[in-house]
């Protein structure tokens, strides 16, 4: 995949590394931003939970669980391994 290609957060897969490209405005995104998920931040997808949807990502040296559905409108850019 090309380095410039961007995908919505809901399409991230286990093992993927990616950089946040844009986070939509709105009250729901506020805590995500406050926890460090801002434009330019790199993260890796450590785990997808057994029943799907919930994922564990690593960013800024810590592990955060969130739901793909909650963050689906965040746009990320996968970083080729």
């Amino acid at each position: 995949m090309s380095a410039m290609e961007t995908i919505p957060f809901r399409e991230v897969r286990q093992g993927m590394r990616a950089r946040v490209v844009s986070v939509p405005e709105g009250p729901d995104m506020k805590r995500l931003r406050e926890m460090g998920l801002n434009e330019g931040v790199e993260f890796s997808v450590a785990k997808v939970a057994p029943f799907g949807d919930t994922v564990e990502i690593r960013l800024l040296n810590y592990a955060l669980c969130l739901r793909k559905r909650d963050a689906e409108s965040i746009i990320v850019q996968p970083i080729p391994a």
């Binding site: 009250p27 729901d28 805590r31 995500l32 926890m35 919930t54 564990e56 810590y62 592990a63 955060l64 669980c65 969130l66 739901r67 909650d70 963050a71």
Partner: peptide
């Protein structure tokens, strides 16, 4: 009321 996203630090 509104529902906030689920966030949990491990």
């Amino acid at each position: 009321g509104r529902r906030l996203p689920f966030l949990l630090e491990l």
